[in-house]
Amino acid sequence: MDEPFDAVLFDRDGTLIRDVPYNGDPARVTLMPGARGVLRDLRARGVRTGVVSNQSGIGRGLLTAAQVGAVNARVEELLGRFGTWQICPHHPADGCACRKPAPGLVLAACEALDVRPARAVVVGDIGADVLAAEAAGAWSVLVPTAVTRQDEVERAPRTAPTLRAAIEMIL
């Protein structure tokens, strides 16, 4: 990573905001440490930003698309606008091409931002984020949390202890 990337794609839950399983309530959105500063710094450098997020609660019937949209709107209120939001609403058993670890969300985000996948990096907290990036031909940085499995940490090509450290690694 000798030169800065054109785009950084973030996982939402556990990366930008605290993971509240199947959250459809914007009032329950809490930022992860450092998220606001990281987004401010990326935008100041002209780096495009996007979000790639599995939201299987929709496919499971636990959330509506409107509830997910309301949570995403709250994220933008707190962090500013993202260049693209790519959401997989499918149930894990649906076998779609978008649900991470498949590359669909990453590829769609790159297309929306007009960035080649090789010029994008995905920052996430679980192995599916890393695998989706690899499948799309993008880079990845894993920022482990309490839910990240040890084998995911061991397999990740790049890890960082914090969101800030991840961004410093790629800029």
Rank of each mutant, 00 (worst) to 15 (best):
P4V: 05
A7C: 11
L9C: 06
F10I: 00
D11S: 01
D11A: 02
R12Q: 03
G14Q: 08
L16H: 10
I17T: 11
R18M: 13
V20F: 10
V20Q: 12
V20D: 11
P21T: 00
D25P: 03
D25W: 02
A27T: 15
V29D: 00
T30W: 12
T30H: 15
P33C: 11
P33F: 06
G34R: 03
G37E: 15
V38F: 08
D41H: 08
D41N: 11
R43W: 11
A44Y: 01
G50P: 07
V51L: 02
V52S: 07
V52C: 13
Q55C: 04
G57M: 08
G57F: 11
I58Q: 01
G59D: 05
G61A: 09
G61S: 08
G61K: 10
L62T: 01
L62R: 14
L62V: 11
L62M: 14
L62S: 03
T64Y: 03
A65Y: 12
Q67P: 02
Q67Y: 02
V68N: 06
V71E: 04
N72K: 10
E76P: 05
E77L: 01
L79M: 04
R81E: 15
R81Q: 14
F82R: 09
G83E: 08
T84F: 10
W85I: 15
I87T: 14
C88E: 04
C88G: 09
P92N: 08
P92W: 08
G95S: 02
G95C: 00
G95L: 04
C96N: 00
C96W: 01
C98P: 02
C98G: 08
K100Q: 10
P101M: 04
P101I: 06
A102D: 12
G104P: 07
A108G: 05
A109N: 04
E111L: 14
A112Y: 06
D114M: 10
V115M: 06
R116D: 15
P117Y: 05
P117N: 07
P117V: 04
A118C: 13
R119H: 13
R119P: 07
V121C: 12
V121H: 09
V122S: 05
A132L: 03
E134F: 09
A135L: 07
G137R: 10
S140R: 03
S140P: 05
V141P: 01
L142C: 06
V143K: 03
P144A: 00
T145G: 15
T145I: 13
V147Q: 15
E152D: 14
E154Q: 15
A156M: 07
A156P: 06
A156S: 12
R158I: 13
T159Q: 05
T159S: 10
L163D: 01
A165W: 11
A166S: 02
I167Y: 13
I167C: 12
M169A: 14
I170Q: 00
